[in-house]
């Protein structure tokens, strides 16, 4: 099982990442696998009975507004970073956590590197699936990169 960083620790990851061009058979959807679906597919499969095992991942420009009615029951939202310099995911996370009060797992996936973890965490991410060449053990230190917490109440409403 692949490993991720979750809540500041290394954890096994039961979720299967489903790509946008994957075709999901009814058998597959009926199974007990943890499925992380792209937004369009997730919208098609909203009646999947096993909500606790159905998560959604967002591309940076996905219209995540569609998720809003379901935020209370979504166990996992992953936000994809195509390159680590694409900062849209930071604002998505901030919106989901503070404006829309999403309380489930919020995971950064894709081009996620050690040097961004501190800041991603500050925006509300609590799970990190690092780029394949990154060692999660070595990245754990990133949470302590700064002793400082953001000023002027920034992040107070984040619940992180």
């Amino acid at each position: 099982m692949p490993r991720i960083i979750k809540d500041g620790r290394i954890a096994d990851d039961p979720w299967r990442w489903v790509t946008t061009d994957e075709v999901m058979t009814p058998e597959c959807l009926a199974g007990d696998e943890h499925l992380l679906l792209p937004l369009p597919l997730w919208q098609d499969q909203q009646d999947r009975h096993d909500r606790a095992r159905t998560g959604v991942w967002l591309a940076p420009d996905d219209p995540f507004i569609a998720l809003l009615p379901w935020l209370a029951e979504l166990p996992l939202i992953a936000i994809h970073f195509p390159v680590f310099t694409d900062g849209r995911g930071y604002s998505l996370a901030r919106l989901l956590r503070s404006r829309y009060a999403y309380a489930g797992e919020l995971r950064a996936v894709g081009d996620v590197l050690r040097d961004q973890i501190y800041f991603l965490h500050n925006c509300g991410f609590d799970a990190f699936c690092l780029r394949a060449d990154q060692a999660p053990e070595e990245a754990l230190g990133a949470f302590g990169d700064y002793a400082w917490t953001p000023v002027a109440g920034r992040g107070r409403a984040l619940g992180v």
Partner: peptide, 17 residues
């Protein structure tokens, strides 16, 4: 100065377009 403090390492805005 207030804007400096707010913008320094403002985590949301480190990778703008």
């Amino acid at each position: 100065e207030l804007v400096r403090q707010w913008s320094t390492l403002a985590p949301e805005f480190l990778f703008l377009p």
